[in-house]
Computed example of a mutant assay.
Amino acid sequence: MTGTTVIEAVRGDITTQEVDAVVNAANSSLLGGGGVDGAIHAAAGPALLEECRELRRTTLPGGLPVGEAVATGAGALRARFVIHTVGPNRHRGQTEPALLASCFTRSLAVARAVGARSVAFPAVSAGVYGWIGTEVAAVAVAAVRADTAAAPGLDLVRFVLFSEDLLHAFDAELADRLP
């Protein structure tokens, strides 16, 4: 690579991605849930839950704050790491785009800290947390582009999306905004 990070969007299953780190759209408990969180925990197996329980017991007794990120091993996933981030919940009044952007930038910082060169993201906060897919796409792409331009070290950032609508939203942002 020449120092330029490839940023792409694909439709697929984040649990099957062959990247160094997958990002989990976690809840603050880190102990699993629905959607992407539940799928990652199910695919990773019990080792992931044990690491998350240890984090809660030691460094994060109150849970992971919204907009922050933390890494664990990936259990049975193809990736080496899971980076957990808690997206803002629009239904709880968490409507600030900067809080959503922080999920992406903090996750990238954690990825660099653990030595990851490739990262797969879901559409954090889209769906059950009430954020519209086009808004998530705009915030996510802008945050990732700004971060990777300012801080080298990643070869690939892939948005792995579960629906055609989300894929179209991310593709439009990637096409419309020049790096």
Rank of each mutant, 00 (worst) to 15 (best):
A116Q: 08
F159Y: 03
V160G: 05
L99F: 00
D171K: 13
A142W: 01
P122C: 12
P122W: 03
D155V: 01
T148A: 08
V136H: 09
L99E: 13
E96Y: 05
V160E: 07
A120M: 12
P97Q: 04
P97M: 06
V139N: 12
A149I: 01
A101Q: 12
S118L: 03
C103M: 09
A101L: 05
S102W: 01
A123W: 10
V110D: 03
R106L: 01
W131P: 06
A111N: 10
G133Q: 11
V114A: 13
H91V: 02
R145M: 09
S125K: 08
L166A: 13
L166K: 01
E164K: 09
Y129V: 05
H91F: 15
L100N: 09
T105G: 12
F104C: 12
T148H: 04
I132L: 14
A137H: 06
W131H: 10
T85M: 07
V128Q: 05
V86R: 09
A137G: 10
V110K: 03
A116C: 10
A149Y: 02
A142E: 15
G153H: 11
R145N: 09
A172M: 06
A116E: 07
R106I: 04
S125I: 01
A151T: 15
T134I: 00
S102A: 15
F121L: 11
T85W: 05
E164V: 05
V136E: 06
P122D: 09
T134R: 15
E135G: 00
F170W: 03
V144I: 13
L99S: 14
E164D: 15
A109R: 14
E135F: 02
V157G: 08
R90Q: 07
A111C: 09
